[in-house]
Design a protein around this nucleic acid. Structure first.
Length: 501
RNA sequence: CGGGGGGUAGAGCAGUCUGGCAGCUCGCGAGGCCCAUAACCUCGAGGUCGCGGGUUCGAAUCCCGCCCCCCCAACCA
């Protein structure tokens, strides 16, 4: 049976989760839920990146003397956030965990054995804040780091280098043979150009300063953070610790990343895997970035939004819906409270919520229900586009077709006017068919919504009295009319209460 | 300098690959319905598809040139 292994980036532990991180994680979560829905064994991984040298400084700044303690606290913040947001990750990897250290060590040795690690001289102006080297021309006129406004140190040290250049042709060949490896297509050109023009051997270690993973066999050096960070995708599924699990999940099917790190994932990462003799992932998908009310999300602007604040007002599902519907997947977009509120009112309160509400109200007290076929074709067709759009990595399109079917349903109610049938004793049979059909549309709708709005889907099933519905397989449940038991209609609070007073 | 994306109705977007009446959501106007969360349905107004050329029976779409905006490169998903 096919399996599905999807990852998010591991997040820098000294950041705080903001709406952009939540977007990446919600996206991965939705895709993971979809694959579970269609019955594939699914592994959904996220985690935190904890070996950066900068953490020592951040800990001090936060008034902590014990770096590990600081890291534990910050990592927990991420885990709690994802828990509160209902993220369905199957694992959470921390790069300070023992399983990661062991895997990284094994990986380093594998690369070393391929002859791809050598010692070289590294010299440059280094800003500890950026953890990056600068050229003189990059600095401010005063010779300061443009970002941190501090004087970079002249660092001259002997480091270990990874022979990426050796894999240039192999990488190009791989991209050529797997044109969807770097996705969306609009990113491909950028990656290929980078490999062709700029792929040089890279330094993969730094002088040890008390934090980071020691280079195997040379404790005076630690592994440069990005090199160890990428390996999380392997160590989380057992590389170096559990061969059986590793064989089950690797290679990954989808690395979901931000567009800023696509080069790492599409050039350096596959080169590392080739060197270590491991199979390459099927796809690296770069989601876009969005602005907040037309402004970049940035620490200096301080406009980062904590997703949990939004959830308090709108609920998790509304936020998920908004982000996946409004931001084209793989493209950039803009986020604003006004737009979120607008989608909430029109699509969720007036659209979905109202649809559920009017059907439940109409059905209340009606005993006899028969599922008719008036909406069968519409839903059958919807399922087809549903799978097609998911396969094409277009979750926004999926939501579009779901909302189209909702419109069909509303139209059907108006055409049949069940409230009128209700008043006519001669039309009991007709009423039973109309209401039965509508109830079935709710059941199907809830199934369609499951990956996007898990809470809402569950609420719909609960209000129908079908709490166990999700235990069925989709193959069985997506068949029109496949109701296992008669509906026990319960009253329910509005799914999306109107917020505007 | 180099690489990428975009400019389509008042707002936000799809359509461009594979040329064929210019479409969606919100907002606006009129009518209908009255089950429902001031919700739902129908109809309508509103667009020189950034500009200029070219190819074609036919161009938002293909080709050439130009203008403007944004991103990456360089914190940040």
């Amino acid at each position: 049976m096919r399996k599905f292994y999807i990852t998010t980036p591991i997040y820098y532990v000294n950041d705080r989760p903001h709406i952009g991180h939540a977007y990446a994680t919600f996206s991965a979560d939705t895709i993971a839920r979809y694959h579970r829905l269609i019955g594939e064994p699914t592994m959904f991984l996220t985690g935190t990146d904890e070996n950066a040298e900068k953490n020592v400084e951040s800990a001090t700044a936060a008034g902590e003397t014990d770096v590990q303690h600081y890291i534990d606290r910050m990592s927990a913040l991420w885990q709690v956030t994802w828990d509160e947001l209902g993220i369905s990750n199957d694992d959470f990897i921390r790069t300070t965990e023992e399983r990661h250290l062991r895997g990284v060590e094994k990986f380093w040795q594998a690369v070393e054995q391929s002859g791809d690690i050598y010692k070289g001289q590294y010299e440059g102006l280094y800003c500890i804040g950026c953890e990056a080297f600068y050229r003189e021309s990059d600095l401010t006129p005063e010779g300061l780091c443009p970002l941190h406004k501090r004087k970079p140190e002249l660092v001259k040290e002997e480091n270990y280098f990874f022979r990426v250049s050796k894999y240039k042709d192999a990488l190009l060949r791989y991209h050529n043979e797997h044109p969807t490896f770097a996705a969306p297509a609009s990113r491909r050109q950028e990656v290929l150009r980078y490999i062709t023009d700029h792929l040089e051997d890279v330094s993969i270690s730094r002088t040890a300063k008390g934090w980071g993973i020691p280079v195997p066999g040379d404790a005076s050096q630690v592994i440069y953070v990005w090199f160890d960070a990428l390996i999380n995708y392997l160590t989380a599924v057992g590389y170096g610790t559990d061969d059986e699990t590793f064989a089950k999940w690797w290679p990954a099917d989808m690395h979901l990343v931000g567009k800023d790190i696509i080069k790492f994932h599409c050039a350096l990462w596959p080169a590392m895997l080739l060197s270590a003799g491991l199979p390459l992932p099927a796809q690296v998908f770069a989601h876009g970035f969005f602005t907040i009310s037309e402004e970049k999300i940035s620490k200096s602007l301080g406009n980062a939004i904590d997703p949990r604040d939004l959830v308090e007002t709108y609920g998790v599902d509304a936020l998920r819906y908004f982000l996946l519907r409004e931001i084209p997947f793989g493209g950039d977009g803009d986020f604003s409270i006004e737009r979120l509120a607008g989608r909430y009112d029109s699509d969720l309160a007036s659209g979905l919520g109202n649809y559920v509400s009017r059907i439940l109200a109409l059905t209340k007290g009606v005993e006899m229900l028969t599922v008719g076929n008036d909406l069968k074709v519409v839903f059958d067709e919807t399922w087809k586009s549903y799978h097609r759009h998911f396969a094409a990595n277009e979750p926004g399109r999926v939501l579009e077709v779901i909302w189209q079917v909702l419109k069909e349903g509303d139209r059907y109610i108006d055409e049949c006017a069940p409230w009128a049938l209700k008043k006519d004793a001669e039309k009991t049979d007709e009423l039973a068919v109309v209401l039965g059909t509508l109830i079935e549309s709710l059941r199907q709708l809830a199934w369609l919504l499951t990956p996007f709005m898990p809470e809402t889907a569950m609420k719909i099933f609960t209000s129908l009295g079908w709490q166990d519905e999700l235990k069925r397989s989709l193959t069985e449940a997506s068949v029109w009319g496949a109701q296992t038991h008669g509906p026990v209609v319960a009253t329910t609070d509005p799914l999306f209460p109107r917020l505007t007073a």
